[in-house]
Structures are given as C-alpha cells and as structure tokens.
Nucleic acid binder design. Structure first.
Lengths: 249, 249
DNA sequence: CAGTGGTCTAGACCACGAT
DNA sequence: TCGTGGTCTAGACCACTGT
C-alpha cells in the first residue's frame, strides 16, 4: 500500500494531528464534540483501535476529554490564580499586567473537612517538624462543584493539642490565628513545587480527566525564631491553577 | 468466564496494578526492566493489545518508560532544586530540612543558545513589556546530557539594542548585569507557574518520556520604578525539577 | 540474529448517556 | 432504543536493540 512518497508518520498520529489543527483553527471550540470513533473509521478508513489511538493522543495531551456514551469533547482551561504573598500582591508595582490572564475567581469555593486526627506524620514531615506526633487536618477544596485541591496539614501535637486546630472548625482567622495565640505565629514560609501525573486515587478525588497532571505544593511555615510549626502538603489539579510568586532580587 | 465473584476491574488494570505493586514493593527497582508484552500475554493469558494497555498505564503515570526494541523500564526521579531567591536561601533559618530531599546539583550544566534575534513578541508578552518590538534570547539547558529546560527571554528592543544582550554571549553577570549597566536594574520579580502535558515539540526538545508533564514558569523582571524589562518563558521537564520559594507573611 | 515494542486489522460484547 | 466510548481477541508486519 501507500502510494509514492514516504509516509512515515503513523496513521493515528496523522489523524490526531488533523484533529489538533481543527482545535487550534477554532473549528472545534472548547466544549465542542469531536468526531467519534465511528466517524474517524469511516472518514479515514481505519480500524476502531486506530481511531481510538488517535483520540487517545488528544486526551493524553490534555486537549480533549472522553465522556462515556456521549463522545469526546474539547477541554477548556480557566485556571484560578493562587498568590504566594497575598498582602504584597496588592501593592502598586506591576499590578494587573500578568502574562497569563486568568479570572481572579469570585467563584463559589467550598472546603470539605475530610478528617482531623492525631496521627504519626510521614518521615520527611516528621523530620521538618522535629517529631512524628502530629495533628493532621485533611481537607478538600471544591470550586463551583469541581474539586481542585487536596490539602493535608501537619502540626506538632505538643503545640496544638489544646487548641481549635484539633477541631473541625478552627475558628476565625484559621489555624494560623490559633498558632499566633499560642505564641507560635508563622511569619516565614517555604513552598516547594513539583508536578507529576496523578495517582489513581488523586485522579479520583480530584475528578481529573486523563492527561491532566497534578501540581504538588509543600508549604512549611516558620515562626520568627525559625521553628517549623506547620507542613501543608497540597495536591492541585494542574488545569485549575496558576501559581504566582513575587520577590525581590 | 470469570468464576464466582464480581471482577469488575478491567484485565489491563489488574495487570497494571500488579506491576505497580511490584514497583512499590521494590521487586522492580528504578532502571529495572519490567515483564514485556510477551511475558504478560503468557502469564495472564491475554491478547497483545491488552498487555500493551497494561504497560501503557504505567507509562502514562510516569512510572515506567518504554525503550524500543529493548523493553519497558522503571523510571527514576532525581530532580534538581531551583530556588526563587538564591540570596536568601543561605540564611540560617530553615536551612537544610526540606521535605523533598534532592541533590542540589553540582552536575554538569550546559547552556545552548538556540537563537538570539530581534522579533515581535507574542501579544501577552508585548502587553507586559509595553511594546511588541523585542530582542529574543532562546536557550536550552542540558544537565548531564539530558535537556531539562527551554527558556525564551524577551527584552524591549529600544532598551537593549546596543547592549551585549543582543549577542550570543551576554558577558559576565549575564543579561541582568547588562540591564543594570543600562540603568534598568531588575530588582523585583514575579513568577507565574502552571503545568500541563507537553506539546509534541516540547516532548521532542526535552526528550521527555510519555507520562511526563512540563512545568511552565513565566518570570517577569521589574526595575525599581516598576517597569517590566524582561519576560522569560520557561518550559521545565517536571521530572527534573523541584521549585522552591521563600517569603514572609 | 532473535526478541522487543510500535502499529494495524476486523471482528466482538459491554455499560453507559441521551432520546 | 440507539449510538457512544471501553474493553478484548487473535492474528499480522515492521523497525529497532541487543548480542
């Protein structure tokens, strides 16, 4: 087969490429349904598995999303902005004028408290906090009905045992206000960031489409005298967030 | 088929799960070869496509990597640490004691200059810099022979036209030193971070295995009077980096 | 060279979503 | 109910890697 000319690109890639072009050219807008397996089989004269492979490429790249019994649809990207320093963010310099324009989000954010319990922290966290015995606050953040963030916070048990941090509702000002009242106000923070594909559990709890990575943010909060009083491990839906940090050279 | 008991997990997932367990349990160490398609077909009595699907799961999750003609291998994760504020990073508080232990990297880092040219910047960048006419520095960073970072920097053409920023070698201290000499020293920075699956071109230029996301970092540098003098768009291999930021509340 | 993963076919049955 | 994507089979040929 294959008349003259070297066609060394696999069929499924050619098909995927054609679909991608269609998306970029705007022939398929975000939310639109793409041609289905049967359409591609007929149009390109290929077997079902080949058509599937083509659609799988778009899904793996995060461009499309399959809905069982309905079709494959073009995905949308409307992330929310998370600022490292909220206080400074409102200063005059450089305000507005961000490269990735995103809604600041006055949307409906719900916080589900999954669990609050006294537990041993993982080894790496225990090393930072100076002891394994911790109170753990496990929460999930849901934006407009879509889960976007899993958050697990660890506090040294000896420090917070008698505070509202051990209860579902930490009260006004949250855990940091309670730490401050205890004489351990966090004033400095370190955030470590990486990204990878989600585990099956993470994909489930964040309801992630295939082809969506997660961003891992690990925040450590320090008091003025350098003691670590909180480690917060967060798992973010990468399609829902843009992180922002500002600092001086 | 399927003797008693509801086995509603697809075969390929069961097989993938078994392989994952093997990795977690250490039966397959990083770099080891996993059972191949033929092995899985024989062991589980399935068709080739099904065995492939199982192996595809591990690759999509970034746990394994296929090498044509050789096999599928367990991947390793040894990222390098990139600090937002190098100066402050050496202060006493909180030094050491990071949650994700990673080599600070005294490894061999090569910088390839792909292109230095005067060009129109993309619309979003032009908006930040206050004009589309820019000098563009396109570079690729290679660590121990493995590409880890693509970097494209934009500078207002009117500002840097006569400086070494327009040449391949910017000289001692780099572009920031040249900007300082021109009276436009960058003193404040904003970095915006997101993550997604790579485009085919990015995967190619970073030699990414399937199942590896990229991290996008967009840095904007401001002078003391609030003028943006550089926008640097970076594409990082997510498997090669941990980003770190420190700030005060 | 033998073995590996990569691509592809032509069927099949299923669970699910919308109508 | 009908069309969709999801899973699976049993074959096949190819290009590549290693020895």
């Amino acid at each position: 087969m294959t008349t003259a000319g070297s066609n060394r690109e696999p069929k499924y890639r050619r098909i995927a490429g054609a679909l991608k072009q269609g998306i970029e050219a705007g022939r398929y807008a975000p939310g639109d349904r793409l041609p289905g397996e049967n359409d591609l089989m007929a149009e390109h004269g290929v077997a079902r598995m080949t058509a599937r492979q083509a659609l799988a490429v778009l899904q793996a790249e995060g461009l499309a999303e399959a809905r069982k019994g309905a079709g494959v649809f073009v995905r949308e990207f409307r992330p929310i902005r998370r600022r490292g320093i909220q206080r400074l963010a409102r200063e005059r310099w450089g305000s507005g004028r961000s490269v990735w324009g995103t809604d600041v989000g006055d949307r409906d954010l719900a916080v589900e408290v999954v669990e609050v319990a006294e537990k041993d922290a993982p080894e790496a966290v225990a090393g930072v906090l100076g002891g394994a015995r911790t109170w753990v606050r496990d929460r999930r953040f849901v934006l407009d009905g879509k889960p976007v963030l899993l958050s697990v916070s660890y506090y040294p048990a000896a420090l917070v045992a008698d505070s509202a941090i051990t209860r579902h509702d930490t009260g006004a000002g949250g855990a940091y206000a309670r730490l401050a009242e205890l004489g351990h106000e966090p004033v400095r923070f370190r955030e470590e960031i990486r990204s990878r594909m989600p585990t099956a559990d993470e994909a489930d709890r964040l309801r992630l489409a295939a082809g969506t990575p997660v961003v891992l943010v690990c925040r450590t909060a320090f008091t003025a005298d350098g003691r670590a009083v909180e480690v917060n491990e967060m798992v973010l839906d990468a399609g829902s967030y843009v992180l922002e940090y500002e600092f001086e050279g």
